[in-house]
Design a protein around this nucleic acid. Structure first.
Ligand SMILES: [Mn+2]
Ligand SMILES: [Mn+2]
Ligand SMILES: [Zn+2]
Ligand SMILES: [Zn+2]
Lengths: 150, 150
DNA sequence: GATTCAGTTGCAAACGAGTCGCAACTATAG
DNA sequence: CTATAGTTGCGACTCGTTTGCAACTGAATC
């Protein structure tokens, strides 16, 4: 299942312009990669893809831009159950939150949108008087295909 | 809110005995710390506390034991929104799963048990034909006390 | 209790992800 | 075009975690 493309590409750059954040060659490359990504990317993958658009992009600029995007709530950071090492994965934050499932056997990552999840967040906000800024539900287990084996 | 103490201490050691896992001085110290912890511990805190019970405990043994406990599904690993650095936190897995909320302003960690969360996991298992082994819902935002300020 | 050996340990070195200080550069406003 | 605050690449660094290895030890067997 590909990432739902419910926002048009260019949206991240537009956000930067609206909020008066300086646009640079390097940021343009990094944002473009995030905007057109069809899967969750880690920092190293993001760097490699961005360098294809602008060879000068440095690793530290990728990390600095990821921090910027996080601070502005434009991307989500995921562990994906640390199936491959200790690093993090990133994806654009879309209008609709979703759950991530990682198969512990084949490594497949699945996404799932649920009204019950929205209801649960509503319950937390109300019952705990907690203002939710970011939420992350990650599940590890066995996918349909791997259920039989094990 | 302290961790709910619904399982008796000694339970981790009992689990090891049942499954024929070798018990050592060092493991005894580490398990005792996990069993009696009243908050989420990172590897460094766990090491320090375990060394008070057995000064010979080494950092690498702590990590190896954490891996062992994870593999046996006896503990959960948390990010707690990476409020303090890139490390992980650990807690015993109790009968009842719970949600973690981290206040982005004061750093407080809150826990919350919810039937809706159980229902959501049921939906994932059914609708996605996914066998859940471990699940982690972490929420970042502002606690009741910090809502007013910003 | 002594013997045995697979499993476990401490140590030191290595690793991977992420951060930081700094001098050079550049996007943008005037 | 100029001035300047913000951004960059670079290299060195921190931090959390892993690993290879020789020495040790728990517990099963005698
Ligand atoms: Mn996703
Ligand atoms: Mn993490
Ligand atoms: Zn699978
Ligand atoms: Zn707070």
């Amino acid at each position: 299942m590909p990432l739902p493309q419910t926002e048009m590409p260019g949206r991240l750059q537009a956000h930067f312009a609206e909020r008066g954040i300086r646009m640079t060659q390097q940021r343009r490359a990094i944002l473009r990669v995030m905007e057109t990504a069809t899967k969750h990317l880690d920092a190293a993958q993001l760097l490699r893809k961005a360098q294809k658009l602008d060879a000068s992009v440095d690793r530290s600029t990728v990390y600095r831009t990821l921090q910027l995007l996080k601070r502005h709530g434009l991307i989500d950071e995921l562990d994906l159950m640390h199936i491959h090492g200790e690093g993090h994965y990133y994806e654009r934050k879309l209008n609709r939150d979703h759950i991530h499932m990682a198969c512990l056997r084949c490594g497949k990552i699945m996404e799932f949108v649920s009204d019950i999840f929205e209801k649960l967040k509503g319950q937390v906000e109300k019952d705990c008087r907690f203002r939710i800024v970011v939420s992350r539900l990650e599940i590890g287990g066995y996918c349909a295909g791997c259920r039989g084996a094990k």
